[in-house]
Amino acid sequence: MAIGVKKVARPRQMSGGETLYLLEILRGLGVTMGHLVRNVFRQENIATIEYPEVRRVMPPRFRGLHRLMRRPDGTPRCVACYCCATACPAVCITIVAGESPDPAVEKYPVRFDIDMLRCVFCGHCVEACPCDAIRMDTGWFTPPEHTREKLIYTIDMLLEK
């Protein structure tokens, strides 16, 4: 097959005045100054918020950090059924079940860790829970930490949220 030659349209040569960019710089500064003046005099419409003093309001169905619910007597509502751990596609929930001294409870989580570094915030765990013991309604996402260990949330941290 013969090699075809394709003609590419070149941009027009710029004039001397245009190559100075002076006009364009002034025009850009104009936009900036316009915003500056507007923000100084009409502050309620600023898009930027002063995080962390001010926090954005999340939509009601936003899936944020998990929390574990408590029974009226303060013990965890979770019965360590492993449904959430089974449903979790990221395999980030680690549960160790124990025999509760209260026969009406029978089974309770001795350990319940969520590895926030692996969580994909899919919400499957919440859907799977038969006891409404785990929720993602804290309205917030994972804060930054300095070490990986701090991002493995234990049962006590999850009950506090």
């Binding site: 019965v79 360590a80 059924c81 449904c83 029978e106 089974k107 038969p130």
Partner: peptide, 8 residues
């Protein structure tokens, strides 16, 4: 009470 039943 399948959630706490070992047979589940």
């Amino acid at each position: 009470d399948c959630p706490i039943c070992d047979q589940a």
